[in-house]
């Protein structure tokens, strides 16, 4: 096994990890702030992928498809939050899991009605179709590098928003004591809606930019959802920094598992999770 081959796998693992981070960060923020366990979060990822497929076909431009998918995903998030999840903030996690599991079924059925059960693909936009030559026989696709860069840029932007802006301060304060935030004159409902919509958009954008890398098909949100829960647990619930490193760890574990021991690939991620939890039961940075 050459150094280049390992480098390629490391790049793949990091790219997958960064993508998982974007999805999982919304999940963990929503749980940390509102206490909502949202099983439908993976469906937002699927929604993004299908929107990318559908809008690329309709407009002929992948870039335009992403730009259009963002407000559409935000609207979906806002409608779900205001119409359904808002009633569950003070309810038990079991109630939340029941409702959001129902949402998965609705999303999956909606996807089948709108786009059918076939597996689709989205072409890599022309600007990003090239690859970087590493050796005589090995090269690395530019699109994967671009996905990693976009994810890193979004992660950086998220860090700045959470650490440096008033909105971010309110999110962190609300995660500690939402009643006190309300008593300071902040409309907590509005804050929750904004964060939920932002989480929805992040998951959908992840699905959209991942669409050219993998096929767009039924059930694609479920795999991501499960991995994201693993990431959230490893990172410590509500902990963004932990989520970031947990996602990289899981991305690498999943990638190397598939390459090195294909027979046990699906087991690798859980072995890593178990190991982390034995070492740090409350998450990487708790």
């Amino acid at each position: 096994m050459s150094v280049w081959f390992i480098l390629i796998q490391v790049l793949n693992g990091i790219q997958y990890g960064l993508l998982l981070f974007l999805v999982a960060s919304g999940l963990t923020l929503i749980f940390g702030l509102m206490g909502i366990i949202n099983l439908a979060h993976g469906s937002f990822y699927m929604l993004g992928a299908y929107l990318a497929y559908w809008l690329t076909g309709a407009t002929g431009s992948f870039a335009l498809a992403i730009v259009l998918a963002i407000p559409l995903a935000a609207v979906v998030g806002l409608v779900l939050e205001a119409g359904l999840l808002r009633t569950l903030y003070r309810r038990s996690h079991l109630d939340q899991v029941l409702l959001t599991y129902g949402l998965i079924l609705i999303f999956n059925e909606g996807q089948r009605l709108l786009w059918g059960g076939d597996v689709h693909s989205v072409a890599i936009p022309e600007l990003l179709t090239g690859s970087v030559r590493l050796t005589e026989t090995l090269s690395y696709p530019v699109y994967r590098l671009w996905v990693s860069l976009v994810c890193l840029a979004l992660a950086g932007a998220m860090y700045l928003v959470i650490q440096r802006t008033r909105f971010g301060m309110l999110i962190r304060a609300g995660a500690c004591d939402r009643d006190m935030v309300a008593a300071l004159g902040i409309d907590v409902k509005l804050l929750f809606a904004a964060v939920f919509a932002a989480g929805t958009v992040l998951a959908a954008v992840s699905g959209a930019i991942a669409a050219p890398l993998s096929s767009v098909g039924p059930g694609m949100g479920d795999t991501v959802l499960i991995l994201c829960f693993v990431v959230v647990v490893i990172g410590g619930v509500g902990n963004i920094k932990g989520t970031f490193f947990g996602a990289l760890l899981i991305g690498l574990a999943d990638t190397f598992g598939k390459v090195l021991i294909p027979d046990l690939a699906s087991f690798m991620v859980y072995a890593v999770m178990a190991a982390v939890l034995l070492w740090k039961p409350r998450g990487l940075f708790a």
Binding site: D179, A182, A183, L184, G185, I186, D187, V188, K189
Partner: peptide, 8 residues
Amino acid sequence: RPTSRIVR
């Protein structure tokens, strides 16, 4: 009315 409104 909501607390945030009253406080405002």
